[in-house]
Design a protein around this nucleic acid. Sequence first.
DNA 1: GTCTATAAAGTGATAGAC
DNA 2: GTCTATCACTTTATAGAC
Lengths: 224, 224
Amino acid sequence: MTTETTPSRGDATREALIRAAVEIFGRDGFNATGTRALAEAAGVNQALIAYHFGSKAGLYLAAIDYIVERVRERIDPLLAAINAELGDDGSSIPRERCLALMLQLLDGFVVLLTSDESVTWARLILKEQQDPSEGFERLYDGVMSRVIGIATHLIGRIRDLDPESEATNLLAITLFGQVLILRTARATIERRTGWQQFTQHEIAAVQSQIHRNVTAILMQENTE
Amino acid sequence: MTTETTPSRGDATREALIRAAVEIFGRDGFNATGTRALAEAAGVNQALIAYHFGSKAGLYLAAIDYIVERVRERIDPLLAAINAELGDDGSSIPRERCLALMLQLLDGFVVLLTSDESVTWARLILKEQQDPSEGFERLYDGVMSRVIGIATHLIGRIRDLDPESEATNLLAITLFGQVLILRTARATIERRTGWQQFTQHEIAAVQSQIHRNVTAILMQENTE
DNA sequence: GTCTATAAAGTGATAGAC
DNA sequence: GTCTATCACTTTATAGAC
């Protein structure tokens, strides 16, 4: 009657395949991943991939959409809170408060990037950054543009810059670079710090370092 | 007579295969890359991969070694110059000079990471960071450990920290994160800045931003 | 919606001629 | 050192039974 139906057997199959796809596509890449490996990991028959998603490529895009949804579940509340405080044109907010919001945003990203699930997501997203496919559009529109958009907005207020300018975007990018390195240089960080996984201690250490760096960068006197 | 011989036909085949391997393994990953694609890109016969390198895996490791050599050609002079100035225990060097050396090191990395060749290298290295194979050992020992080793040494002098400590390594990692994001978030940066490639203007913009950030981070008053 | 079976094309490695 | 031809598998997608 409506689009809201009770979960059917097919829905369970779709879900199992998508979870397996995020894991296996992320690890091996699209071309190196076989439909048999996907089906086996999901515990379903190989022919069901074509039935439910049309093709291996269809399953891949479903996996990308799944990642976007999971990431947005985590960051949308944070982004909404910042947006609400910034308001339509609440340029009366002091820069110290904007810095605090920026640090909150980065803290959220540290937590996200140190979560176990993010290992798999990061692998897939990194592949799309190096060789964008149709999936990158969905990642960019769903996650990246929203996050950097807020960050440039905050930075614009803090340092009295045009949020759309090349310089502001570049500054935002270098700030996030400090956090994203947690996943991009994964193996090297394990070697240098001995960290095998991120517990409360490691997360706090990273957040504290990021706080010091970002405060120093954004609160320094104007130069040049 | 000696190991120094004139280049033979086989040497040209080896070189062509390695160049093709860096390109194609980097783009598609090890498992998704076919020996026929490698041979065709190199303009040689498919059977010559097994003849010269034993297997597809042998060619892959030769490609990793090739990248390590090319990167070291570029960074070893810089590292040697810094090491020479630091000396055996020249703790008399002022921290301002150490900051200048740190900025030189990061400038060199900006130039390296904005070069056309580095697009391909970065793809392969990123894959090894996410899923380390035997190749990662060679990358880490040949490049990463040397670079971060120097950086933690410099940071130790500038901020009076133990170069081996977790905190110093974490600080060094966040500094390099600002630069490495140039390649890791490749597609997003193109979207936000409109930069299609890195010319003199883009390189200067990045270096200038990194200078401001790193100076602010390393020269701030001690906190906490 | 799920299964088995299979068609058509692709895989890495190798044998053997030159 | 390079070639062709081929072996033994694996691949995606689909046809058709249930």
